[in-house]
Nucleic acid binder design. Sequence first.
DNA 1: ATGCCGGGTACGACCCGA
Length: 276
Amino acid sequence: MRIATWNINGIKARLDNLLLWLRQTQPDIACLQEIKTTDSSFPRERIEDLGYYIETHGQKSFNGVALLSKMRPDDISRGLPQGGNTAEDPQARFIEGVYSLKGRAIRVASLYLPNGNPVWDDSAAEITADTAGISKKYAYKLAWIERLYHFARQRLALEEDFILAGDYNVIPAPQDAARPEQWQQDALFLPATHKGFRKLLNLGLTDALRAVSNGEAYTFWDYQAGAWPKNNGIRIDHMLLSPEAADRLRCAFVQKEIRGWEKASDHVPVWIEIAE
DNA sequence: ATGCCGGGTACGACCCGA
């Protein structure tokens, strides 16, 4: 079974690329991020014509995530639980599907973790020992990682195949950036960001790409400043696996060449193969 | 280079991304 994740940076602008990719790569489940549209405006027909079920959690203009799957999902949930806080998250960044694979349940989530920049600005958040002077955007990112931690801890207790896939906006280590010195003060690389990501991994999740290779595996190249021709990339799209899913991991790939396509997204797809 | 490109909104510039 092939499961993929791709931040497509706008479903309407990327529909032809998405259809071409679906035909070529044939993912059984595809996690999309930054669909940048509402559920009712999502262009369903040509994707359904390729044999995919579509589940979306969208909003107007920004964010938005989706799950495409060749099998019908048994259950779908939208939004990351707030953990004690009943307020709805106004940003559409999380959707989870439950699928049946030869009698087993497999849970796959598509997530778009907040960017968090600028880290320091005038809209200082609540002052605490850990967060003095940081922006509301960075505070939201750190809180979102903490919410994801609590969610993952609950899911891991089920001891099922569970895959957390998406755009994490986290560069895990210096080797995951062509120019790590450029990211030292960035929300994608700051110590507090790494601390949250490590806490998540330390629950027992496996970073699928790093489980199969220590080599260069960038997934994002900025549109600006010739980042793509210079290969000034970063690895920020990840697939984290429960121990049950990691046991079945066969391979993991980054489809780097797709960054060179006409009208490319600034992210490329990542996919894994899981033994059935 | 706190904005070099590109998408969305909506039709003139702004907001946003990483």
